[in-house]
C-alpha cells in the first residue's frame, strides 16, 4: 500500500512539475476521493497547486453535490464546475434522450468544452487499469491529440518512471496516478486513511425502482414513473457513482466501511457491472475513449 501511495504521489508531482496548466478531474466518487487525498499529501503543507474540475451532468446524486462542497471547503482547493450549455438548452437527460446521447453530450462533449475553455494542458483522471480491458493498456501519461482523441496505436512507450510529458500546442496529456490500484486497494486505503466518502457507498434504506433489471435510486422527481409504478424502500448501496439514472444500486446490508470491504472481497460481479455504458456494444469503452471520453 505504501509503495502504491508513493508511486501515485510521484506521478502527481511529476505531472505538476512538467505541466503549464494542470487540472484534476473530480467526479466526487471514491476514486476521486483517493486522488484528492493523494494530491493533498503530495504537496503538504501547501494545498494542491491545481483546481478540481467537475463536469456536472446535472444528474448526479444530491448527496454527491453535498459531499463535493464539503471536500472543497476542507481541502482549500479551487473547484471549477462545468455543464454543457447546449445540453441544458436542449434539456438533455438520460430518460428523454437515452444513455448514449446523454453521456456523449453531457459528459464527453462537456469535458472537451471545459478543457478547451480553460486551456488545460494536463488533466488528472482517476481511471484504473483493472477497471476495463482497454484501460489495461493505457499509459500513466496518456497522450491526446488536438481534439482530445486517443490513438491506442500511437501511445508513447513508458519506461521505468520516466514519463515524457512534452506536448505541442493544442495537445494535452491525461495522467492516471492510480493506474496500478485495484478496487480492493481503493477500499483498503479509504479505511486505512479514514478518507471521507459519499454516504451512498454505504447501505441504507433508499427509494428504488426496477429499471432494465437493475435497481435505480429515485433521487429526485425527474424519474418517469409508468402507470402504477412506484418506488420501494430497500437496503441498497452503490459500488460506483455516476448519473443517478445510469448507476444501479445493489442490495446490501453493508452499512459500515468494514462491512463494505468484507462484501467487496466476496463480490462475484465487477464494479462496472452497474455501469450501463460499458457493454452497449463490443469495444464500447475503447470507442468512447478514442472520441475523448475519459
Amino acid at each position: 500500500m505504501k509503495q502504491l501511495e508513493a508511486e501515485s504521489i510521484e506521478i502527481i508531482r511529476e505531472a505538476v512539475a512538467t505541466a503549464r496548466n494542470p487540472v484534476m478531474m473530480y467526479s466526487v466518487g471514491k476514486d476521486s476521493s483517493v486522488m484528492l487525498h493523494l494530491a493533498r499529501k503530495a504537496f503538504y503543507p501547501a494545498p494542491p497547486p491545481f483546481p478540481l474540475l467537475h463536469v456536472d451532468t446535472q444528474w448526479k446524486f444530491k448527496e454527491m453535490y453535498a459531499h463535493r462542497e464539503r471536500m472543497v471547503k476542507e481541502s482549500g482547493v479551487k473547484l471549477i464546475t462545468y455543464t454543457n450549455p447546449e445540453g441544458i438548452a436542449q434539456g438533455v437527460g438520460p430518460f428523454t434522450h437515452g444513455s448514449g446521447y446523454h453521456t456523449d453530450v453531457m459528459k464527453t462533449q462537456a469535458l472537451k468544452q471545459a478543457l478547451d475553455m480553460h486551456q488545460f494542458d494536463l488533466v488528472f483522471g482517476g481511471a484504473r487499469r483493472d477497471e476495463e480491458k482497454s484501460r489495461a493498456k493505457e499509459r500513466v501519461f496518456s497522450f491526446r491529440s488536438a481534439g482530445h482523441r486517443w490513438d491506442p496505436k500511437a501511445q508513447r512507450p513508458e519506461l521505468w518512471n520516466l514519463y515524457n510529458a512534452r506536448i505541442k500546442p493544442d495537445e494535452s496529456i491525461r495522467v492516471f496516478p492510480i493506474s496500478n490500484w485495484t478496487e480492493q486497494d481503493i477500499w483498503n486505503y479509504i479505511l486505512q486513511e479514514r478518507i471521507p466518502i459519499v454516504p451512498l457507498y454505504l447501505a441504507a434504506e433508499r427509494p428504488v425502482v426496477k429499471f432494465n433489471g437493475q435497481w435505480i435510486l429515485v433521487d429526485d422527481d425527474r424519474y418517469p414513473f409508468k402507470e402504477g409504478e412506484k418506488a420501494v424502500m430497500k437496503m441498497v448501496r452503490f459500488r460506483t457513482l455516476g448519473c443517478w439514472p445510469l448507476t444501479a444500486a445493489v442490495e446490501s446490508d453493508a452499512d459500515t466501511l468494514e462491512a463494505v470491504i468484507a462484501e467487496t472481497l466476496n463480490a462475484r460481479g465487477s464494479e462496472r457491472e452497474g455501469r450501463m455504458i460499458d457493454s452497449d456494444e463490443p469495444g464500447s469503452m475503447e470507442k468512447k475513449k478514442q472520441e475523448g471520453y475519459f
Binding site: R129, D130, E132, K133, S134, R135, A136, K137, P152, K153, Q155, S179, N180, T182, Q184, P282, G283, E286
Partner: peptide, 24 residues
Amino acid sequence: LLVDGLQAEREQGITIDVAYRFFS
C-alpha cells in the same frame, strides 16, 4: 479474450500493446 483488450487485437488475434493485469 480476458486480456486482449483493444478491438484491433481481438480481430487479429494478437497482442499489440502492453497490458497490465492485477491479481493476488
